[in-house]
Design a protein around this nucleic acid. Structure first.
Lengths: 197, 197
DNA sequence: TCAATTGGCATACGAGGCGTATGCGAATAG
DNA sequence: CTATTCGCATACGCCTCGTATGCCAATTGA
């Protein structure tokens, strides 16, 4: 069984995704010319249509890749927390910090939703939400979080607030100070979820 | 001083905004052909470029109009509340309810941010946020809300969570049930802002 | 090893949307 | 009553997208 063929194909896909990711992350989806960024990968639109169907399909692939990376990073950081509640809070703040990166902000929080619609319905791009939902469910079981809220709903609300927080920080003249304010406000909102003794 | 001239100009602007608002709100900004929706208003792109500079300028005008309407509606509903805290909560839930309308959701929460960037930096389109910020500040003065959060930051976070909540409800198979869950979760988060006795 | 075939990717073509330059005609000003 | 402004339409070229088509290399089967 020969492999060069399969490898070339995988490489072509990877090159397209990388080129598109860079273009989408910098100039944005709408401004990114398919001719331009395929050429920057040494390819043409022919390859793109063959592998991904259309521009939206390629965006989906880019989003799936980024989502996977984000989930990895979130768990990596948050898993060091001593308690599960702290783990959950760290997960949220890490999420905000990642959303500060221009590429993630642009693709995952601006162009993605505009082009593909509600992120909750993206296929293979909800690893972070799934993780948060899982922790919330467990925290409810442990009696730490109030029982009468739906975990995934909360996770989605947090997701929306995070993206706003990140945008606010990123566009601020004093990102350091704004970041402190945003994370403080964020943690305060999260306190509302805790069961009072 | 004759008026017909001025009136015709105002009417042209209004017709363009109305046509664009309808097109943007239904098929979306990117899919809306300027030739098509100007024609539906009995005009051409010439008028559009003359009055608004380009497609983005027209979107800004549409957004300013919608924002004004939203602020009016929010205050109308919420001003009936007995306490200021209740007023604030009603403001938030009304905001979510408005975000359920497809036109508002599409233009204000999806295409708007994608095309024009961070809503916090839109000119003349932050009436709702300003109102929420004002109430939060007052509530802090009254000792109802914890003092160590920045009002506008909180208002923005709430704005982000609202738009997510609205999307979730709108795309749900059982909007009624989802709406209940979303608003419940939302109120729970808001509880985090209250000062504990 | 060699023909047959698959399929990955490039090229070519047509359609449509955008921005700019230009032109016309009516309302206003002096 | 003439001159001028300016609101808006028309005309042109560029760019981008999607599809149809073609080519060549890699695989398969005998």
């Amino acid at each position: 069984m020969h492999r060069p063929r399969r490898e070339m194909i995988a490489e072509t896909r990877a090159k397209l995704i990388a080129a598109a990711r860079h273009a989408f992350g910098t100039i944005g989806y709408a401004e990114a010319s398919m001719d331009d960024f395929t050429a920057s990968a040494g390819l043409t639109r022919g390859a793109l249509y063959h592998h991904f169907g259309d521009k939206k399909g390629l965006l989906q692939a880019v989003i799936a890749e980024i989502d996977g990376e984000m989930a990895l990073r979130v768990n990596e950081v948050a898993s060091k927390a001593p308690t599960r509640w702290q783990h959950f809070v760290d997960e949220c703040t890490t999420y905000i910090e990642m959303a500060l990166e221009p590429e993630i902000q642009r693709i995952m929080f601006r162009d993605g939703p505009a082009v593909l619609g509600d992120p909750a319905q993206w296929p293979n791009a909800n690893a972070c939400i799934a993780s948060m939902t899982g922790h919330l469910t467990a925290l409810q079981g442990e009696g730490v979080v109030v029982a009468d809220v739906d975990p995934e709903t909360v996770a989605r609300l947090i997701n929306g607030a995070s993206s706003q927080a990140a945008q606010r920080i990123a566009n601020s003249k004093d990102p350091e100070a704004t970041s402190k304010k945003a994370i403080a406000a964020f943690k305060q909102l999260l306190e509302g979820l805790r069961k009072k003794p």
